[in-house]
Structures are given as structure tokens and as C-alpha cells.
Design a protein around this nucleic acid. Sequence first.
DNA 1: AAAACTGTATTATTTGAGTAATACAGTTCC
DNA 2: GGAACTGTATTACTCAAATAATACAGTTTT
Lengths: 124, 124
Amino acid sequence: MITFEKFTMDDSGPIYGQIVRYVKRGIVAGRIENGDEMPSRRVLSATLGVNPNTIQKAYRMLEDEGIIQSHAGAKSYVVLDEAKVEAIREELAENDIGAMISALKQSGLTREEGLELIGRLWKE
Amino acid sequence: MITFEKFTMDDSGPIYGQIVRYVKRGIVAGRIENGDEMPSRRVLSATLGVNPNTIQKAYRMLEDEGIIQSHAGAKSYVVLDEAKVEAIREELAENDIGAMISALKQSGLTREEGLELIGRLWKE
DNA sequence: AAAACTGTATTATTTGAGTAATACAGTTCC
DNA sequence: GGAACTGTATTACTCAAATAATACAGTTTT
């Protein structure tokens, strides 16, 4: 069973998007694997203090991307193969790192200045 | 006169926030300096294709942070000293880089893996 | 002085995100 | 088989963001 701690979600943007990203990052990090059981909409709703409809919206998006499978009445499961995981890994890196690079460029930092600053701020 | 190209604003979140960030990045990058004249609300509204009220909200925030000055009827001007610029520089780095680091950590990357990947994706 | 700009303020409307409260049908489990 | 779970769907409501359409008073500019 995948565990969602009470609001790891401190990102930006809509909550359902944050949940989708949280799951994808969990997959890439190996915390979530093929065959894992998703918490029910109601349970996750209570855990995160978020409306069931919002959870359903996130789950629907995950299903549309082929990451989970839902059958009416039964529990929902994670469905993954190595290719999918790799695709998600690249999508996340592209998004997270790409956004920062374009922000730092807009701030006038060169590649070397940027890398130096990141290295200094990332103290594990 | 500060120039806003037709939608450099492809960020996320409210438009007024994007405008505020755009100005701050311009300041840090040296594109915007003390004494610079801001485009009028109406002009920027037309340039960006955004409602005047939304522009006014952004300008109000900039004024509240002491970055611009507005006097009813007259044009608005940028007001900066070196200390302010440095404060903005640190705020932006903290935000942009901090967000990415916490995202990459959540994806399970170590500091070394992260820095290596960023270096590879940032091809100037 | 008059025209053409400025900033500022107000009211109404639309849209998307999120909440709230149910309802229903399918499944799991004892 | 019945209870207790599942996923799914619907309708109504609130709220913030953004738009739209003005209006007014102060400033530049000619």
C-alpha cells in the first residue's frame, strides 16, 4: 500500500496536479512499484484533508496516463513497466529542471554561475 | 522604458504573480535599473493581452514591496538600491532553485546525480 | 487652457478549483 | 448472503482569478 504522508503536498498549482506529480516522483524514486495497491479515494481524502472529488480527479488523470487501473467496486492498482518508468523519469526531469534553468537564465545567470549556486544551495 | 515582449509569461500561477517575477528577474539580470520608467497599466495591458485590473494588481504588489513608485496621474518609476537588488537576487534563487531541489529529492536523486543531470540538460 | 495621457476605484460577470452532500452499483470478506 | 468496503456520478455551493466596462481625478504635453 502506497503511503501519503499528511501533506507532502506543498507544491504550487491545483491539488490534483500535485497528487499526480507526487505519485510520479514516487515511481521514479522506487517507492511505488508495479502492482502496488492505491489507497481508496475516501481514505486518501481523509489522510490529506482534501475533498474526495479532488482525489478522484487525480486518479482519473493517472488512469488516463496508464499509470493505474481502476475497476468499479474493486481497488485500484499501479501498472508499470520499465519503459513507462523511464518515460516518467524523463518527463519529470524535463519539467523540474527545465523550469529552473529558464528561470535562472531570465535572472541573467550563466551556466557556470548557475551550477555553482545550485551546488552551494544543495547541501543534501 | 522597460520592454515586455508579448508573453514571456509562460510560467505557472496567477498572471499578476508572473509579472512580478518577470520584473524581479529583469532587475537581477540588470535589464531593469533604478529610475527606469514603467509602461503604463493600459499600455502593458494591451501589449500582453491581459486585463488592466490584472496589471494594476501586479503593480500594486511591486509598490508594496518598494520596487516601484506610483503617483496618481504621473508615470510609475523603478526605485532600487544595491541592497534591494541583492535581497531580490537571493529571494529568487531561494525560490527557483529550492523548488527544483525538493522536486529532485522527491524523485530520489542524490546530490551528485542531480548536479550531473542539471549540467547535462543546461546546454547554454 | 485643452487634449491626451497618467494612476486609481468601482461594480458586474465568467471561469476553474475545490468543497459538500449524496446516491448507486460492483467487489471483497466474514 | 450481508456488511463493509470499493469506484463512479450528480448537483449545488463557495472562492479566487481574470475579464469587462466604466468613471474620476491628477499629470504632462502641446
